[in-house]
Design a protein around this nucleic acid. Structure first.
Lengths: 352, 352
DNA sequence: ATGAAAGCGCTAACAG
DNA sequence: CTGTTAGCGCTTTCAT
């Protein structure tokens, strides 16, 4: 004879006990709880009473196993501490939740190795879909993922994979940068530096494109030592701005590829006693919470994060529900939010 | 005869196929993959080869069902957009991940109804534990949770439930407030206002206690119209500071119960042309990213978030591994970070 | 309208 | 050292 298991003291009540309590079969319980199939009002009531009495809480993990649907989504971002991603994450979590999904949060620090590990884990845990925000250009992990799991719904926020069948929700970065530069150029600036973030990043490369485009259009030579790529951290903006602003031919304006970088620029300017906007104009990107906290308030390019996050979830949910893998791309346009950090160069530019 | 199911096109390979490919039983596969029990080097190799060949990815949901361990944790916070919680969440996610756990992120906006729903969902999804950050005082949901699932490991960050058997990682808020006030008092301030956040919140009530305590100790009458409770949002700090600063007997210093509130205070001061710190000293709480972004940089009370988050995970993991539910409370002490937003009142206080 | 039974993919006890 | 087998808690045919 088989040895008795040690009694499992788990207090958790299962569908079986509910069935017993209600004097029906477990399938009946399942039916009323899922509102599937027919059940008489009377049994329905019996079941519901038993559920209440036993304080029954169905196991979604068991259900997931049968239905192959965990009702959870993976969200892969570089870093939740970055205000841009926390804003985004909030919208995504909210919208997902309202559709009955939970979110596994994954921070990669733009580390491909880490990203790969998360992807495996998410797959193992059976997520119904994965949302990537700001992947690197030509992120091999995503390619591999799509190869191994072509059926898994994927949406990319802020990234383009023309060859892969997945959904993309993007903002026109070159247009945004172009607008930022247009504003500066219109104010009479000619010596405009560019401080980018991580160079393998869509945000960096595309905004750089817009930067060059605007300059070229006005026939202004782009100076190599005016363009810098580093990271999106405040510290990076600080260090690079400091270097830039200590040059003999320092720029009269800086286009920072993100608000966080702009924060660093402010810090550097303050340290060097360079007044913004009188002696230095600066434009950021994102229109994050930082923009209004900075003094003077930051002129920046607004990325419609909320709308983008919301759209991402809609697409994801549709893909999951309809079980069809297609490629959908939606493009958002950013726009300039003028605040106080820019100024016409003629007005008063002590440097000149 | 039973009708054949429609072929399940799921591309996912299961342990069965690996077993077939490797010519062993599924239990053998399970054994080598889990490194449990004995297996000869030879079969081990065969299995591993098959795994690689088929690109097998075990299902943790099936495993979870057997083992009653999902390797996931629920994290319930008010709002990830709040920089305090994104800092915290990052540490928690990192540490949890390094122990093999994933995090379900839940934003409640301090809404008890929402919190209750999340708790149910987390339970249904079989999380191995739940971490609550900054619950309300006497949060009934937590009480109920512990009643229904006494075996579920719970750790509370920044909250106290003396009657419940759960773990607490707290910071001594009254001490923090007391230090903030001590600093201001030492600088000669007597008219010090208090701007709190949500009144049902430990942070608010305990910091208020510290505020009163410091004042009493120096024999200073606490003025009712100098203490305000509202929310932790910037906007709330702004509105309340504005009102405060327009009074005839406006305070010479403000103790803001969080850095975000302090941000609002800066804004109000700027609008009213009140210079910080010359005409108004302000102290914040948290030492968040905001503190160094603000100009002048904010003097604030540092909460050791990283250490606290890390500790929370350690306790959680221990509780899960050892399967014993005990009450552990760890207390952290905050300390004052002096920066530029405070100043001795004698020096130059135009108001006086 | 309801119940019986067959799994979902895996782990672990047990018997070789 | 390895295979057989019995579930984990639920959903879903299919039969009644």
């Amino acid at each position: 004879m088989r040895k008795r298991f040690h009694k499992d003291v788990s207090v958790v009540v299962t569908i079986k006990e509910v069935a017993k309590e209600a004097n029906v079969s477990i399938s009946t319980v399942s039916r009323v709880l899922n509102k599937s199939g027919y059940t008489s009002e009377k049994t329905k009531e019996k079941v519901l009473n038993a559920v209440k009495k036993l304080n029954y809480q169905g196991s979604l993990v068991a259900a997931a196993m049968k239905k192959k649907q965990t009702l959870t989504l993976g969200l892969i971002i570089p870093d939740i501490k970055n205000i841009f991603y926390s804003d985004l994450t909030r919208t995504i979590e909210d919208r997902a939740n309202s559709h009955g999904f939970n979110i596994f949060l994954c921070n990669t620090d733009n580390n491909l190795q880490k990203e790969a590990e998360y992807i495996h884990l998410l797959i193992a845990k059976g997520v119904d879909g994965i949302i990537f925000s700001s992947p690197e250009v030509d992120d091999g992990n995503i390619e591999e993922l799509k190869e191994n799991y072509p059926e898994l719904p994927v949406v990319i926020l802020g990234g383009k994979f023309p060859k892969l069948i997945l959904n993309e929700v993007v903002v026109d970065n070159v247009d945004g940068a172009y607008k930022a530069m247009g504003h500066l150029l219109d104010l009479g600036h000619k010596d405009i530096a560019f401080i980018g973030g991580d160079p393998e990043t869509y945000a960096s490369v595309e905004r750089h494109k817009g930067y060059k485009m605007a300059l070229n259009e006005r026939g202004i030579q782009v100076k190599d030592d005016y363009v810098i790529f580093d990271t999106f951290y405040i510290q990076s903006g600080y260090e690079n701005a400091k270097r830039l602003l200590q040059k003999n031919d320092r720029p009269t304006a800086i286009f920072a590829v993100s608000d966080s970088i702009a924060v660093g620029v402010y810090k550097a300017a303050r340290e060097l006693n360079i007044r913004i906007p009188e002696q230095l104009s600066v434009v950021g990107f994102d229109d994050s919470q930082y923009a209004e906290i900075l003094y003077p308030m930051l002129t920046t390019i607004r990325t419609p994060i909320k709308e983008m996050g919301q759209r991402a979830i809609e697409i994801m949910v549709k893909a999951i529900k309809e079980k069809q893998i297609i490629k959908e791309t939606v493009l958002f346009y950013p726009n300039l939010i003028e605040r106080e950090s820019t100024m016409a160069i003629e007005a008063d530019h002590p440097k000149k």
